[in-house]
């Protein structure tokens, strides 16, 4: 089935439309988020993990609201019910300020984890694509043997959990031993390499399915017409079918990108400190589960919505009138 992840894209591409009033606001928040993230990354490379804003300010705010609320609660008299209500609101403000204070304090660490999430996602999808194109072409146009090999690869990888695949690579094959020498720059551990291999291998199978479906949706007359003007079969596939098919595959890529952003979190279980793992480390230090997992949720939401907007933009950029403008799957 080619549409395995397509519902995600549909749903998320609707997100903008579903919240029309929030659209420009969302874009502004998104821009702000990415500006902050990039500046944060640069700061981390330059060696600073200090928050840009003092967390103490928000902590003070949280304590202030809490104390005021407590005072109000203890005040009796005719206004007691009203004061109780206001106190409730004040406690809410206190919690919010506490959440922000918490966020300000730990966002640098999360940003550092998010860097690896982005690296894993982008490398996974790009390297995966390099494998996926020949896989899908073999699947559609290959002979019985290449077709069977391609099908076997795709079905095996789509039929088993990604986490089990990562375990095979990391624990079973102990792949990280081969990458010990490559731990430089942005790749602080060999496990990151293993994760990249895992996501590449896995993503290739899914992307191959998307591209296969897209290739098959190009009318067969197109290849016949290409042959009729004297192109070879390979040339016809290369110059006529693929340029159309890859455009049809864009919705699939959007799904794949979203999928990888989310499932890169599984690298945590092979010791990669990406976004989820950096959050989990903070959680085990602070026990502030609600705050940290709330923050993680917001972080992933921002990444996924950004990816959706970006892919929508790409889709518009490469659109050809009357081609590739399929709604949904």
């Amino acid at each position: 089935m080619s549409g395995e992840r397509s519902t995600a894209r549909q749903a998320l591409s609707n997100a903008g439309r579903q919240l029309p009033a929030g659209r420009s606001l969302g874009l502004a928040v998104g821009a702000l988020f990415w500006c902050w993230l990039v500046v944060r990354w640069v700061a981390i490379w330059l060696g600073s993990k200090e928050p840009f804003f003092p967390a103490t300010f928000f902590e003070g705010l949280a304590t202030g609201f809490r104390n005021d609320g407590l005072v109000m609660q203890q005040t009796g008299g005719a206004l007691a019910p009203v004061l109780d209500f206001v106190a409730g609101v004040w406690f809410l403000f206190s919690d919010l300020a506490g959440f922000v204070a918490f966020g300000v304090e730990y966002l640098p660490e999360l940003a550092e984890g998010a860097w690896l999430t982005v690296v894993l996602t982008v490398t996974g999808i790009l390297f995966g694509l390099v494998i996926a194109v020949p896989l899908s072409v073999a699947r559609v146009y290959g002979g019985p043997v290449t077709r069977g090999l391609s099908l076997g690869y795709i079905e095996l990888l789509r039929g088993t959990p990604l986490l089990a695949q990562l375990f095979v690579l990391y624990f079973g094959l102990n792949l990280s031993q081969y990458f010990r020498g490559f731990t430089f720059g942005v790749l602080p551990s060999a496990a990151v390499w293993v994760a990249i291999v895992g996501f590449t291998v896995n993503s290739a199978a899914y992307q191959a399915e998307y591209i296969r479906a897209a290739l098959e949706s190009v009318e067969s007359g197109q290849l016949t017409a290409a042959r009729a003007i004297g192109l070879s079969r390979t040339e016809g596939i290369r110059h006529v079918v693929l340029p159309q098919g890859l455009r049809y595959a864009i919705p699939g890529w959007t799904n794949e990108l979203i999928y990888l952003i989310k499932y890169s979190s599984l690298a945590a279980f092979i010791t990669v400190v990406e976004l989820f793992e950096s959050g989990r480390i903070i959680a085990s230090d602070t026990f502030a589960y609600l705050n940290i997992y709330g923050m993680l949720a917001l972080f992933y939401l921002a990444l996924v919505l950004s990816a959706t907007l970006f892919m929508g933009w790409v889709e518009n950029r490469v659109a050809i009138p009357g081609l590739g403008v399929r709604d949904g799957r």
Partner: peptide
């Protein structure tokens, strides 16, 4: 909105939450 949020968050975060 609930749908968009649930679909955007990794399953591991949802489970841990």
């Amino acid at each position: 909105t609930v749908g968009v949020v649930l679909r955007a968050i990794p399953i591991v975060v949802i489970l841990v939450f």
